[in-house]
Write a protein that binds this DNA or RNA. Structure first.
Length: 647
RNA sequence: GGGCCCGUCGCCUAGCCAGGAUAGGGCGCCGGCCUGCGGAGCCGGUGGUCCGGGGUUCAAGUCCCCGCGGGCCCGCCA
């Protein structure tokens, strides 16, 4: 399934290979030549260029001979119309009449699947979002959701069978805090105006903060008694920070939090009670299980709602506690305890990777961070409960097994590189070697707020729900101004696409500072702009009943101006998709779609499409419009953005 | 202290892996364009010590070294 652009560059590369072989006696591969081809920075230089010095390394010849040979070889390609040699560059102008035919025929033949390939059904699990079930999803999870959904889709559209999984971490300490506060308050229902996960998030934040306040106060007292002034000062400032956090949380839900403050004051050792809940839950104590599950389920109801709004459909919801109940964790743990790599870290069993890490080939095979020290993995706490990464070993095995997956991709923030590396190493030394090398940590940088970072405990986060609702308001205003009836599902699709686009158009390796006011600007370089462009192209085609006279197209019209640029861009789409798939880079797809939209909109303003009296040219214009519509729809869909006929 | 990532017009961002031609976009700001196939649009203008300093090279935003600034990690948290 070769796209037009690939056909073009391969054809040219083959001419070059034949030329240098016959005249200079050099052996070059297609990849060698295609690898150095580039698009010149300015259009008047040509459409494609070969910088000769880059081939000199592989083809020993006099520089001028090589340049001359390449220049005359590429002329043999049917696609090359003109060649200009400028310094070390062999610049080629493509015969767009010939190439345009290839692009249009490809487009016509492939129709809706233009740009997609078929890898034959590779099975892949994508685990994503997996936010702690103690507060609503914030925009950091929004980045995760957007990336995960993109990965799932780009794989699916290229033939993979994908399963989307969400890991509900109900065994962690955070959940115990939530359950504790929820219980102390007598399992309250949220006020009518508040979404349940938002409500529970405040209870969690208040409980965790209050518990921390109690223990800091105790430490403060002992520091005072010991006359440790330095320590006393430190703790005092920590305490005032916590009190400020508490007040901020309290202001959002005063009646409930005030009650919680009173309740916690009555307890002797709240922190111990929290750990007690965690231990009892892991051990399966029935009433604790009931309590924790009901609290987590409440939060999950809200989270599921948000994900539905985002257009993210999860296939499997995995409760972490089930790993314990199904004995998967103990299985892994027993295996680990018998392993020769087991050591004691401060009295608790841990896996030591230092021997394994000396093997640089293994580091490479498992794609581990190169120079980073990876500390031993502590498997259990001294009270016997397990730790997150230990359970994640069991979970990874489960994901591979249940879906019979060849690859498992974890979409997890970059801050977890070390645990993810430990996970791979643990899998490897426990004998899950295939799993270890086919586990991918798709890392992304965090989303922060201007000046602050987001924290669940402090309750300082911007939720996906509020951003969606603000974006809907912006969209509603724009639609109303233009006299379009703003329907709620359309507004939601615009809003969620805008949010996802924001998260996908920046490279995952860069932190995003989320500024709500700026996010509301949905002009050019935004999902609504792309959606608008699609709707515009689609609307033109619908006016002629989507009838493109494929056999009437006059390809001589491909040679000029913006039509030429559009043919070029449309022809490149399958190539762009392959690159995006290989490196899982949503930002490149965003850039490409923007470029198509920009050129189409300029062209649209300059030339009439439907009422061009020259029939062949009119059908070429319709074919181009069809091409724009197709790449827009397919590109938007792969990015997980919505496609609307009217916006 | 050690490790990883990032630093490009006022703001955001592409280009860096595979060095090559005048560093692309977008936002903002200024000025134009709607009785015409969708104005969330189009056209023009404004704006850049590519964080700094060395080095490698015919050629450095890109590679190497030394710094600076920001983020993250180095937990019996996740």
């Amino acid at each position: 399934m070769t796209g037009p652009y690939e056909k073009l560059v391969e054809n040219i590369a083959n001419r070059v290979i034949a030329g240098v072989r016959d005249r200079l006696g050099c052996d070059l591969s297609v990849e060698d030549v295609i690898g150095v081809m580039e698009e010149p920075p300015r259009k008047d230089f040509g459409d494609l260029a070969i910088p000769a010095p880059r081939l000199l390394k592989k083809c020993r010849a006099k520089f001028q001979d090589l340049v001359g040979c390449i220049a005359s070889s590429v002329k043999n390609s049917v696609y090359v119309e003109k060649v200009n040699v400028t310094g070390p560059y062999i610049n080629m102008f493509i015969d767009m009449k010939t190439y345009g035919r290839v692009v249009v025929e490809n487009l016509r033949g492939r129709g809706k699947s233009y740009g997609f390939s078929n890898n034959g059904g590779v099975r892949v699990v994508v685990e994503f979002v997996s936010a702690n079930p103690v507060h609503p999803l914030h925009i950091g999870s929004g980045r995760n959701a957007a990336l995960g959904e993109f990965i799932a889709r780009v794989l699916e559209f290229n033939g993979s069978k994908v399963e989307r999984r969400y890991y509900i971490d109900d065994l962690g300490l955070q959940v115990a805090y939530l359950a504790y506060g929820y219980k102390l308050l007598g399992r309250p229902e949220p006020p009518r105006s508040m979404k349940v996960d938002h409500f529970m998030g405040l209870i969690y934040a208040a409980t965790a903060t209050l518990t921390e306040i109690v223990s800091v106060k105790e430490e403060l007292e002992s520091a005072r008694k010991a006359n440790d002034t330095v320590r006393y000062m430190e703790l005092n400032s920590k305490l005032s920070g916590l009190l400020a956090d508490l007040e901020r949380i309290r202001s959002k839900l005063p009646e409930y939090i005030d009650k919680l403050i009173v309740k916690i004051k009555e307890r002797h050792d709240p922190k111990a009670e929290v750990y007690d809940i965690m231990r009892k839950y892991e051990n399966g104590d029935p009433s604790t299980v009931e309590l924790v599950k009901s609290a987590v389920e409440k939060v999950m109801t809200g989270i599921r709602h948000t994900l539905r709004d985002l257009g993210v459909m999860i296939d499997k919801w995995d409760w972490e506690s089930d790993l314990i109940r199904e004995n998967l964790v103990s299985e892994v743990l027993n295996k680990a305890l018998k392993s020769p790599y087991i050591t004691l870290e401060k009295g608790v069993p841990a896996l030591d990777f230092s021997q394994l890490l000396k093997n640089s080939k293994l580091r490479e095979k498992l794609d581990l961070p190169k120079y980073t020290d990876i500390p031993p993995l502590v498997l259990v706490r001294s009270d016997g409960t397990t730790l997150y990464t230990t359970r994640d070993i069991a979970y990874t095995v489960k994901k591979f097994r249940e879906f019979n997956a060849e690859r498992v991709i974890n979409v997890i923030a970059v801050e977890q590189v070390i645990p993810q590396a430990q996970l791979k190493l643990a899998l490897y030394l426990l004998g899950y070697r295939k799993e270890a090398s086919n586990l991918v940590h798709y890392a992304y940088e965090l989303v922060t707020l201007p000046g602050t970072s987001m924290s669940g405990r402090k309750g300082t986060y911007v939720t996906i729900d509020e951003v969606l609702s603000e974006l809907k308001a912006v969209a509603r205003k724009l639609m109303t101004e233009r006299g379009i009836e703003p329907k709620d599902d359309v507004l939601l699709k615009i809003a969620r696409s805008a949010l996802k686009y924001l998260m996908l158009s920046t490279s995952p390796s860069k932190p995003i500072v989320f500024d709500l006011a700026k996010a509301m600007n949905i002009k050019a370089n935004s999902a609504p702009y792309l959606m608008y462009t699609y709707a515009r192209a689609s609307s033109v085609l619908s006016r002629c009943d989507n009838k493109v006279g494929w056999n009437k197209v006059d390809f001589s019209g491909c040679t000029e101006g913006l039509r030429r640029d559009l043919i070029w861009l449309i022809g490149k789409f399958p190539h762009v998709m392959k690159y995006v798939l290989k490196y899982l880079r949503p930002e490149d797809l965003a850039t490409y779609l923007n470029m198509v939209a920009d050129v189409f909109n300029s062209w649209y303003d300059r030339e009439r499409i439907l009422d061009d009296g020259r029939e062949g040219l009119r059908h070429l214009k319709l074919a181009i419009t069809f091409g724009v519509k197709t790449v827009m729809r397919n590109g938007l869909t792969v990015m997980g953005l919505d496609v609307l006929e009217r916006i």
